[in-house]
Design a protein around this nucleic acid. Structure first.
Lengths: 216, 216
DNA sequence: CGATCGGTTGAGTCATCTCAACAGAGGTGG
DNA sequence: CCACCTCTGTTGAGATGACTCAACCGATCG
């Protein structure tokens, strides 16, 4: 676990009233790697914020095919699904800490309007991401998908060296590919000197322009 | 244009405060087939409701690849994108009538809370659909995609005979396929007596169970 | 030190795409 | 009213990107 996934990130997102409230009111819980945080079909009773580690949301088909909805990093809110029941489950990418808050508590909390706005904000961000992901899944090639993924992760983490807390299987299920294809594309991007992997879970962008162009 | 796309549909959706407000306050506009209603990158200044006809939202890549975000039928709200700018453009599927309302007018309108809730509701519905579509685009086969599409359209239109106001190209760009593949899958579903096409724009479900099973 | 797990690489297959021909519906003008 | 054209959709044949299956490799762990 690198320091990059530290609690500090949460504090930096000062504009976000929801994260603020989460920090003050939420209950801190820890989850082991691959542990389920909530299940598909669970009532959408809580809101969550990542403190350390990372989280994935997952939807399963009856035959085991898996689609990952989104990855969440420290400071990010998740579990804000619209319906009364979760359609995606959430699992810990690695050992992690999460703040949990009852949705009803949000309503009861003072400074109500600001909080409502914050939930609204987070929901909008979710929608925006999902809409962007539609284009990726529907129309991009394997290479473009992987390039987009790396660019996106680098953008969200900011740092020079970017850690990937998720496995190749997770990446594949996020991009609608197989692990083998993901691996091949990563090798390809590396041999064209666009990115460089220090280990299989950490990389650095060597040619931002080329990466953005591929991400299309 | 069949009667199925009539204004009456809007009235039936009585629970929906937003549609109600749109009807009272919105400006009615007509658009010709394939005309643009708003463009990618336009500011998200208005909310829209379909009265008659149908609408598609579209995202284009620089090389012309196209992803359709959603189709909208009479009584449905669209244009509710989260950011300050549209990331999808909207076009008329066929000649159609649309109600247009300034977002700022929504805020000024009496019975404010109810309206806010309605916008909230519609946004949630958008998110739900987008999340469902992720699984379809990422993990379903061509056959499953087409079956899901037909089942979904039938479900939304309710009627026995279902009209498809969109072209094969639209369907293909919605499902992340090519027109040829869509056409082949439709032929296949028809020869297995799961659906029946009266014309290429109108069908009827002959075996609901089999269709749902395929839609997975 | 062997076993296991996650990741990479290779070879062959298959679903979907591409390219091309064709068919039918609808519109237009003579 | 017919001949023609265009546009949309269907069908066929061959190409290909991504998948499947299998071997291998290195790191981690008991």
């Amino acid at each position: 676990m690198s320091l990059a996934y530290a609690f500090e990130d949460l504090r930096e997102d000062g504009r976000d009233g929801l994260a603020e409230a989460m920090r003050r009111l939420g209950v801190r819980m820890t989850f082991a790697k691959d542990e389920e945080i909530y299940a598909q079909e669970d009532p959408t009773e809580f809101v969550y914020a990542v403190v350390t580690g990372g989280v994935r949301t997952i939807r399963l088909m009856s035959d085991g095919r898996r689609q990952i909805g989104e990855f969440y990093y420290p400071g990010e809110i998740f579990g804000l699904e619209p319906g009364p029941e979760h359609r995606y489950s959430a699992e810990a990418l690695c050992d992690c800490e999460v703040l949990v808050l009852k949705r009803s508590a949000l309503r009861a909390f003072a400074d109500d309007e600001k909080l409502e706005r914050a939930v609204w904000q987070a929901t909008r961000r979710e929608l925006e991401r999902a809409q962007g992901h539609l284009l990726l899944l529907g129309r991009k090639t394997a290479c473009e998908k992987v390039a987009s993924f790396l660019a996106d992760m680098a953008g969200r983490r900011g740092a020079e060296a970017v850690d990937l807390p998720m496995s190749r299987q997770d990446i594949a299920d996020y991009l609608g590919l197989t692990i083998e294809t993901v691996s091949r594309m990563l090798t390809q991007l590396q041999s064209s000197k666009i990115v460089e992997f220090a280990s299989c879970r950490q990389f650095r962008i060597r040619n931002q322009g080329a990466l953005s162009r591929l991400a299309a």
